[in-house]
């Protein structure tokens, strides 16, 4: 499995504020200052890495069958609330921003700086998403060179997928080489890590399972 160093790039202030609970703050507000400081500090602490593995796959009546040889993986249910057609391969991935930012969040609380902790934690979440986006861009570029279209990424715990699917993801990414571990309660350590699956196919449709999703509960729909 390839191991990639992934820079999250510029982190969005708006997104950091949204994940920290929202709000509109004037540019001269003390909160805006804390946000900017958290982004600078957080960016320096992000150690983005990721890895992935690809298997042939195909649609079945009620899900997606993965051809992983001796790994003998259970079929994956369709993500979201609609069926995906034309799946020819599935790429399992995991990314992380490492432990450093989490430690700094803990330190902020110890130093009685809850506002700094709140925003720094949000920076970590935004950075993890950005790192995952970087990795899926790499996957998409490789797929495109082979003539495949790429779906948006789907993660256990989202997209109508049970968290139990984490077991499958970590089975195929066993010894993932970037130090992400899965606990018995399906928690990834470091916590700011994202795992999931991207589907490939020459006639893949829809590309974004979020788009037609009617789930009233999802706060992270990316359509």
């Amino acid at each position: 499995m390839p191991i990639l160093n992934l820079d999250p790039g510029k982190l969005s202030e708006t997104e950091v504020i949204r994940l920290a609970g929202g709000g509109v703050f004037p540019p001269d507000s003390p909160i805006q200052t804390v946000v900017k400081r958290a982004i600078t500090k957080g960016h320096a602490l992000v150690e983005g890495t990721g890895t992935y593995v690809k298997f042939p796959a195909e649609n079945t009546h009620d899900g997606i069958l993965i051809h992983a040889g001796a790994l003998n993986i259970d079929p994956l249910p369709f993500p979201g609330t609609t069926r995906i057609y034309g799946v020819e391969a599935a790429v399992f991935f995991v990314v992380t921003i490492g432990h450093a930012l989490e430690r700094e969040v803990d330190l902020c609380f110890l130093q009685r700086d809850p506002v700094g902790a709140l925003f720094l934690d949000a920076v970590g979440s935004v950075a993890a998403e950005a790192v995952a986006d970087r990795l899926t861009s790499v996957i998409a570029s490789e797929a495109e060179a082979l003539g495949f279209r790429t779906s948006s990424r789907c993660s256990p715990g989202y997209c109508n997928w049970s968290l139990e699917i984490q077991k499958t993801v970590f089975r195929v990414l066993d010894g993932n080489g970037i130090g992400v571990e899965l606990t018995d309660s399906m928690l990834m350590i470091p916590r700011k890590s994202i795992s999931g699956v991207v589907f490939l196919g020459k006639n893949l449709n829809p590309l974004n399972p979020c788009k037609n999703c009617k789930s009233p509960d999802c706060k992270d729909r990316r359509s």
């Binding site: 609970g21 929202g22 909160i31 506002v115 709140l118 925003f119």
Partner: peptide, 15 residues
């Protein structure tokens, strides 16, 4: 009118 960061700032001031 207020969001979580405001409340945390005020909570910190209260403390």
């Amino acid at each position: 009118e207020y969001f979580l960061p405001h409340v945390i700032m005020s909570g910190k001031a209260m403390e």
